[in-house]
Design a protein around this nucleic acid. Sequence first.
DNA 1: CTGAACTTTCAGTATTTATTGAAAGTTTAA
DNA 2: TTAAACTTTCAATAAATACTGAAAGTTCAG
Lengths: 178, 178
Amino acid sequence: MSALTQSFILHFGEMGSKWGFNRTVGQILGLMIITEEMINAEQIAKTLSISRGNVSMALKELQSWRLVKTVHIQGDRKEYYTGIGDIWTMAFTVMEERRKREVEPTLTALRDVLLAEATDDKDKYAQQRVKELHDLLEQASVWSDEFQKMDAKNLQRLVKLGTGVGKVISIKDKLRKK
Amino acid sequence: MSALTQSFILHFGEMGSKWGFNRTVGQILGLMIITEEMINAEQIAKTLSISRGNVSMALKELQSWRLVKTVHIQGDRKEYYTGIGDIWTMAFTVMEERRKREVEPTLTALRDVLLAEATDDKDKYAQQRVKELHDLLEQASVWSDEFQKMDAKNLQRLVKLGTGVGKVISIKDKLRKK
DNA sequence: CTGAACTTTCAGTATTTATTGAAAGTTTAA
DNA sequence: TTAAACTTTCAATAAATACTGAAAGTTCAG
């Protein structure tokens, strides 16, 4: 493995742990991103100097995140792996999975709090704040849904609107007037 | 503490650990969100049944995230704490801090990889993928910057555009034609 | 100054999370 | 049906992270 690859993968491992998965999972994902060919579990273990068992667990995790594809190569009994699509698709897949795993359960918990009987003023205040939080997260989910429906090309166009976020609001007003 | 409060705080603690800080920090933030009054470190420790030292560490952490305000109350030597502004402001503050802590260092690391000499084809492929990732994260930072410049009211308006994300793209095209 | 009232620090400990590798399970060519 | 080639599981262990509480530090009224 070249020094360039090495440093990327090490950093990506750390980065991974910030994004919801552990170091090993991050490193494998990083390896797949910068490797054009498909790779098998054995190669991964050797390249990253980790145990075969660990690779198995990590691949399972990556599959649950819908970030890797499995492929069978003619005349080889091993399973081969590669990352799904391009970087944009991956990034939005990670976002969507995080929403499912983090926001969804939180929304459920918040709804429970909202359904509970608020007797005193303190509870009423608490419930109102929880309502605000709930609405915010629900709105975020709406966005995420919309993104999910778009393809990589359009996602890219939308995100590159970036420098005009301010404008978007005034556009909204214009739309309303139609 | 009422059962309602209790369940909210327990969940918020777990949620916190998904958002970049630990359980205790999450619980304190949760407590502040649903408590109208300012509270002092002693009260926090007692309410959440954690040690005084732990509260001190957690408050320091919350301050580094710019999520709490400190206030001195006339005739009391203790320091009092409360959450900054409304839920929307908090949410975007968390996003901005996460960007600073996670995306920023990653961008730096990716730039280093891009500056390295790519000798063989494998390295060239790797570099190209890293370039894609770099550009994506940089674009995300542009968005984050824009958000940071807006006030809570406008953020809310923008996010509620949600259901029209698809439209925004076609609007962009119209704008261009003007 | 002094010392009471508070806050912070940090070494030791507890808890949680990740990793290994041997054993068990699965698949397939012959 | 067998056994070689592979994958998965999981108990034991290692590593990382969080928490406590006593000691050290800070601030301020008198």
